[in-house]
Amino acid sequence: MNLKELKELIEMLKDTDISEVEIERSGVKVRLRKGGDVAFHPSMPRMEYPPAAIVAPAVSEAHAPSAPAERPSEPAKSTQIKVTSPIVGTFYRSSSPDKPSYVEVGDTVKKGQVLCIIEAMKLMNEIESESTGKIVQILVDNGHPVEYGQPLFVIEPA
């Protein structure tokens, strides 16, 4: 698999409801997870292209597969908190299209800090963090619909 194919795969994934896909080809296994990080299977050979081409900041870290935070494909540890949507609506990562996102993966957030907005019929619901900690994953893309109870963020409590 080359860089172009991987890029296409990421693009395709963006437009679907599939949140995670794992592909194995000629001894290289790639797992893509939407809204979160791109994970390389630790046991597989390292791929030969610049990591910056892939999207998530975690990619560059994935070359050193020992630290736990760099393996998001692992099951979430029990201490991690999932922030879920209280309503059916549309997920926005910022207060308006020209504003920066409230939070990014890796950010430290405080209890009560706004993480995102869910909109349903011009009802804007600012979702606040229930605990102080670090954003480990953002599970939904900006502008995408979310269901009631759908996980939006994974937070590692401080």
């Binding site: 209280p86 011009k122 009802l123 606040e128």
Partner: peptide, 21 residues
């Protein structure tokens, strides 16, 4: 969902905000 129109033109708009836990 909640624009109010008169003769096809907007005369009123609503914006609702919620704080929930």
């Amino acid at each position: 969902p909640n624009d109010i129109l008169v003769a096809g033109r907007k005369v009123s708009g609503l914006l609702t905000e919620m704080s929930a836990e």
